[in-house]
């Protein structure tokens, strides 16, 4: 499938700040299931190029705006060709070893309830892949998708206790549960083509679990499926904060407001 994406993020500062530093991980991954065809990132209209590829295999750009900055507008847009690999991240290059993704973070600490959920999934038997699917199903059934029920600081344990949350919470609980079983797991940020009118927002997140012999496999409890050709993978990290595609740091004191607009649509391809 060919997907067109437009992702605009606008930070407004009142009063204008002396400077803004930004770290962007807004460049879709390249692997067998995904190829950016045309991709452009800009900050206040100026094109942004990545400076390096980090250990996670994600391209990173660092930028600065100086001298009375009232607004920083980041636009990422382009087209990405996708193929359904049943969630398997095949042909992706990264330096990081899966063992790093066993590390607990404050947002992904497994409490007794998460550990119990993970044991239940583990007890379902079969391969790691099928037990990871069981974990995804369990998380999906225990945490209802309720936008606004949680915020960016909600931990995996809090989300499971509340029984509701968004994609970030689903991913965090899968990650915490998988790690408690000794399976490396990480957080993936990306885009998603929602099929239901007025449905899901187009920025999305899911978990990846390291499966022996297969490597990283995506699990999305929000939709209870592994990523398909509707998914665009952008970057990953130990949790949502670590994986954040945009991170800004303003110099000076100001009220900051954030405005985000995302659109993902299939591009009509003419038959040859």
């Amino acid at each position: 499938m060919l997907l067109a994406v437009r992702h605009r993020t606008t930070y407004r500062y009142d009063p204008a700040v002396a400077g803004v530093a930004m770290r962007l991980k807004l460049f879709p991954s390249r692997f067998d299931g995904q190829k950016p065809r045309r991709w452009r990132v800009s900050l206040n209209g100026a094109a942004v190029k990545p400076d390096f590829t980090n250990g996670w295999g994600d391209e990173v750009a660092t930028l600065f705006l100086r001298g009375g900055v009232p607004e920083a507008e980041v636009i990422a847009e382009g087209e990405v060709e996708t193929h359904d690999l049943a969630g398997v991240l095949r042909g992706f290059r990264e330096a990081l070893k899966p063992g790093v993704c066993l590390r607990e973070t404050p947002r992904t600490r497994a409490d007794a309830a998460i550990a119990e959920l993970a044991r239940e999934a583990d007890a379902s038997g079969g391969s790691v892949l099928s037990r990871a699917h069981a974990l995804q199903d369990l998380v999906s059934s225990r945490i209802a998708y309720v936008p606004g029920a949680t915020d960016h600081g909600t931990t995996a344990a809090q989300a499971l206790a509340a029984g509701k949350g968004v994609c970030q919470d689903h991913a965090h609980v899968i990650i915490a549960g998988a790690r408690s079983l000794g399976w490396p797991a990480r957080y993936v940020a990306g885009y998603y083509l929602a099929h239901i009118e007025g449905g899901d927002v187009a920025t999305h997140a899911w978990a990846e679990v390291w499966v022996p012999d297969l490597g990283w496999v995506g699990f999305d409890a929000s939709n209870d499926i592994c990523p398909t050709a509707d998914y665009i993978r952008v970057c990953s990290g130990l949790d949502a904060a670590d994986a954040a595609p945009l991170r800004g740091h303003a110099e000076g004191v100001a009220a900051e407001t954030l405005d985000v607009e995302v659109g993902v649509a299939p591009v009509a391809q003419t038959q040859q």
């Binding site: 980090n54 250990g55 330096a95 990081l96 070893k97 063992g99 790093v100 066993l102 590390r103």
Partner: peptide, 24 residues
Amino acid sequence: ILKAGIVPEDLVYRNSAFLPEMMG
């Protein structure tokens, strides 16, 4: 040294002083 099994991988990779940002 981790692949050779001399130092356990866990001690390094799960150590909060190990910074993934320094890979490579």
